[in-house]
């Protein structure tokens, strides 16, 4: 029988995501995700409906003000479905970064009492929202039937954009949750930051609306992803592979630097949280 040997000493070298370790702790990640879902569904009256209400009501209001009054184009598709296809992913993204950035502080009780790779905490927090995404996409299907939009085979690539968004949310979550342990300012800055981000991401307007600022917009990794997500679902719009590729590169950079930063400060968490 081979024996497990644990060696404890000060860590010094640069570390990124340890996928093997994450795999070993997959059951714990699943438990955390299950817990978050169970708790939320038990504490709310309409549970899963919230996942629909939030993007749906935002879509209705945006359709009225931006689509109807301000006459912002949907780039060739009806504005309600145009904005909903964006809001669906945007809601997941903002929900995931909010949940993960607060997750370490919320788990202080665990961090000071039991060992497991700390990075599991912000990771689990980004997974929970995927269920909401699935629930809310039922409305999208309804809208597509209503507007008789026939998707092309590109729709099978939608998971790619979802995974990119997930990776981006994790990367940002690693940064923010780790900073939040030391500086609670994050909790105040984030809602404001998310609000601003909505306006520099083509969620409620097509990126074609600002041709002169195209390059600047593309520096926001969500730009390429949101555009591609929408184009892949709705079929009629062209997918800008260049911007999507640029987004993917930025996502990888944020994910790797985020995990390295998280790993470099995680040893102090239990002492300062």
């Amino acid at each position: 029988m081979s024996e497990t040997v644990t060696i404890i000493k000060p860590s010094s070298k640069l570390q990124f995501l340890n996928l093997k370790e994450l795999w070993n702790y997959r059951e714990l990640i699943a438990s955390f995700v299950k817990r978050d879902i169970q708790v939320r569904y038990r504490q709310t009256i309409i549970g899963g409906l919230w996942a629909i209400i939030q993007p749906f009501s935002t879509m209705v209001i945006f359709s009225f003000f931006f689509g109807h009054l301000a006459q912002i184009s949907g780039g060739g598709v009806p504005y309600p479905i145009f904005s909903y296809a964006g809001l669906l992913l945007w809601t997941y993204f903002t929900g995931a970064i909010t949940a993960s950035s607060g997750s370490m502080v919320a788990s202080a009780g665990l961090i000071t009492k039991v060992y497991f790779p700390r990075i599991i905490i912000p990771i689990s927090a980004t997974i929970t929202g995927l269920l909401d995404y699935l629930v809310a996409s039922i409305v999208l299907i309804g809208l597509m039937l209503y507007y008789s939009i026939v998707p092309t085979s590109l729709i099978f690539l939608v998971p790619v954009t979802l995974i990119l968004t997930w990776m981006l949310a994790m990367g940002i979550g690693f940064w923010l949750s780790a900073i939040n342990v030391k500086y609670r300012d994050v909790g105040y800055v984030l809602p404001f930051f998310i609000q601003l981000m909505l306006f520099v991401t083509p969620v409620i307007y097509p990126s074609s609306i600002a041709p002169n600022f195209k390059f600047l917009l593309a520096l926001n990794p969500m730009t390429g992803i949101i555009d591609a997500h929408r184009a892949m679902i709705l079929g009629g719009l062209p997918v800008n592979w260049g911007t999507l590729g640029l987004s993917a590169v930025m996502v990888l950079i944020i994910l790797l630097t985020g995990s390295a930063y998280f790993k470099s400060v995680e040893k102090h968490f239990a002492d300062i949280i």
Partner: peptide, 19 residues
């Protein structure tokens, strides 16, 4: 430190078996 909740500043611990 033994439970790996906090990291030592220096030194080394080796444990044989499931902890």
């Amino acid at each position: 430190i033994l439970a790996r909740i906090t990291e030592p500043t220096s030194g080394k611990v080796t444990m044989y078996g499931r902890v």
